[in-house]
């Protein structure tokens, strides 16, 4: 069964462990990426995402476990895996003193199957920058070029480590379109991201990691369904609720968070320290029960918004809200 799964998977990770001395960066991770899908790996900083990717890219050796890419064991077939895989590293730079065409020609020369630099630059809408150097590009252009560089070998699998980090909304959307286009050509894509909307929008399936462990794998919809709550209510009262009043709400509903923004404007809603975010179960009576409880307190309702729970809710529930380095 395992060998059958390996044949069908673009990436197969089995019981992967990576230790640095006494520190365990990746702790028994198992997942598979199907051919042709966009697979996202989410996790806070230090979750083990990049280490996992670097083992898949054969940049690092696993302490335990096995990784196969495109049906090939990465340890024993590193050169072939590299030849058929495109990689964009988290913090990759390129030669300062070569122009974009020259860099792509150079990188392409390392592969048996190479794409034409002009075609690659056209795909990422950088044809007019063909003779420019990396230092002359904007952040979005640099990221688009990094994707182009990951395609120099016409890869079957592309690994993108945080491809949109630090980009403005326009540049992010532009890059999302590019990633989708590449995927539509049949290229399997594995990406890591901190952006929940990016993961939800791009990825067919997701894995959430924390502290080196794989917490959950599934489609964004499946992951959201895992939460008991199916929608969230953001409400603003005319006065702050007491702890007793909050606890009375929590008996019926889950108090998720309070939003404290010193009365600053947030779109159409005046958000004050009296604003609370509650997650409700999918029981149809839950909303009514909550409103009844608020009514009993004598507090006035200044604002009420109902939204579905998002991937971010799933992520925070699984990984917690504690600040990471």
């Amino acid at each position: 069964m395992i060998s059958c799964a390996i044949m069908q998977s673009a990436v197969q990770v089995e019981n992967l462990v990576k230790r640095y001395g006494t520190f365990t960066a990746v702790d028994g991770v198992t997942f598979a990426v199907e051919r042709g899908e966009i697979f996202g790996i989410l996790g806070p900083n230090g979750a083990g995402k990049t280490t996992t990717l670097e083992i898949i890219e054969s940049l690092q050796k696993p302490t335990e476990g096995r990784v196969s890419v495109l049906g090939l064991d990465v340890q024993s077939n590193a050169a072939e895996v590299k030849a058929r895989t495109g990689v964009q590293l988290q913090a990759s730079a390129y030669y300062d003193y070569l122009n974009l065409t020259e860099i792509l020609s150079l990188l392409g020369s390392f592969y048996p199957n190479k794409a034409k630099p002009a075609d690659l630059l056209e795909q990422v809408d950088l044809s007019d920058k063909a003779l420019s150097r990396i230092g002359e590009l904007s952040g979005g252009q640099k990221q688009r070029f990094a994707v182009a560089a990951s395609l120099v070998n016409n890869p079957e699998l592309v690994i993108l480590d945080e491809p949109t980090t630090g980009l403005d909304p326009q540049a992010r959307r532009n890059l999302w379109s590019l990633i989708k286009e590449v995927n539509q050509r049949g290229v399997t894509i594995v990406l890591t991201t901190h952006s929940m909307d990016e993961a939800e929008l791009l990825c067919k399936r997701l894995a959430i990691m924390d502290h080196g462990k794989l917490l959950v794998v599934g489609t964004p919809r499946d992951l959201i369904k895992r939460l008991e709550a199916s929608y969230a209510v953001k409400l603003t009262t005319d006065r702050p609720m007491t702890m007793t009043q909050l606890e009375s709400l929590s008996g019926k509903v889950e108090v998720f968070d309070s939003v404290v923004q010193d009365g600053s404007a947030n779109g159409d809603v005046e958000v004050t320290e009296n604003t609370y975010l509650l997650r409700l179960s999918n029981n149809p009576s839950a909303l009514k029960t909550m409103l009844d409880e608020i009514s009993k307190t004598g507090l006035g309702l200044e604002n009420l918004q109902i939204t579905p729970v998002t991937l971010e809710d799933v992520f925070l529930e699984l990984t917690g809200t504690e600040l990471r380095d």
């Binding site: 890219e57 990759s92 030669y95 390392f110 592969y111």
Partner: peptide, 14 residues
């Protein structure tokens, strides 16, 4: 420092 060496390592270049 610029991770160019790492970038080369992910290619099949010996």
């Amino acid at each position: 420092n610029q991770a160019i060496l790492k970038r080369l390592l992910v290619t099949p270049l010996p």
